[in-house]
Simulated scan of single mutants.
Amino acid sequence: MIKKLFSYLIPVKIYEAKSALSKSIEVTWANGELVLDSENTNYSYGSLQRILKVGLKNIGYKKIIAMDSILVLGVAGGSVIKTLVDEIKFEGKITGVELDSEIIKVANKYFKLNEIKNLEVVIGDAFEFVLKTKDRYDLIIIDIFQDITMPNFLFETFFINRICYLLKNKGFVLFNTMILNESQNIRNKKYLTDFNEHQFKIRTIPRIEVHNELIVIEKMV
């Protein structure tokens, strides 16, 4: 409790570990709440939770409550899952895919991720999961970073097409991206051209928390 109160004055780190995938994993009290950070960016809760909440509100909480199944690619500490369950009151099935098993251990210990009854966590590669799964989803949330780097496969046409295939009719994709330079801005603009405008409605929410751009994709048919 003392650390929590003190965190309103200055962040208080309570856990730090090395990870082969994420380099550094840190749990910190900041402004009275626990956050999960990598070496250079926020991984869960804090600013990331605010960013993804903007996207979920853009889709509409009423629409999300009525959904049956949600896929989260990139779980980290599980802040977006907490928003879905605690704030939106989503009761359908959530499948979370996370490559870094060390992060899931931290999420279970400090953020009680393993106590969410309608969540199944898969430790594995998101690309392989998307390639192999036979399930379809009402909402696919993509939030995959290794520190501040986004894997190239997220922007490849094959992966995009597979994501669209796994999406149910009238379903949504919420894609969190980071733009730090002009080449990444061009990358995002090119990404948007891979969608058939008659099948998908696309909108962007730029410059959230300065560097993040959300892409919201709605499957129309």
Rank of each mutant, 00 (worst) to 15 (best):
A76H: 13
D86Q: 15
P151W: 08
A20W: 11
K53A: 00
I65A: 04
R203Y: 11
R50C: 00
T133W: 05
A66Q: 12
M220I: 07
D37A: 04
K189H: 10
K93G: 08
I64K: 11
F172K: 10
K53Q: 12
Y191S: 08
L99G: 06
T204A: 03
A126W: 04
R207E: 11
I103C: 05
L52D: 04
G78T: 04
L84S: 01
K93Y: 00
D37F: 07
L36T: 06
T83Y: 02
K132M: 04
N196G: 02
V130R: 07
F145V: 13
T193Q: 11
K62P: 12
K62F: 03
I104F: 01
F158A: 12
D86W: 14
D125C: 02
G77L: 10
D37H: 13
L56P: 10
L71D: 02
S44C: 05
G46W: 08
N42W: 08
I81G: 01
K4F: 02
D37W: 09
M178K: 14
K18V: 03
W29I: 06
G32A: 05
I202A: 07
T95R: 10
N40A: 02
L48S: 13
K134G: 10
I70M: 00
K13G: 04
A20K: 13
L192C: 06
K82Q: 14
F200A: 02
E182Q: 14
I202R: 11
G46M: 06
G171I: 00
G32Q: 12
I160P: 14
R50D: 01
E128I: 12
I141R: 00
W29A: 04
K89Y: 02
K82D: 03
E39L: 10
I144Y: 10
V122G: 08
Y43F: 15
T28M: 01
L167P: 13
F127P: 09
E218Q: 12
I215P: 13
E87F: 07
S47T: 07
Y110H: 09
G46L: 09
N185E: 10
K132T: 01
G46T: 05
I215E: 05
S69I: 04
K89L: 06
L9V: 10
E102Q: 15
N212Y: 07
I142N: 01
I64E: 00
G124K: 11
I70K: 04
E182T: 11
S22F: 07
I103S: 08
N181S: 00
D138K: 09
Y8S: 11
V27F: 08
A126F: 03
S69F: 06
M1K: 13
D135I: 07
F90D: 06
W29C: 01
F195L: 09
V85Y: 02
V75I: 09
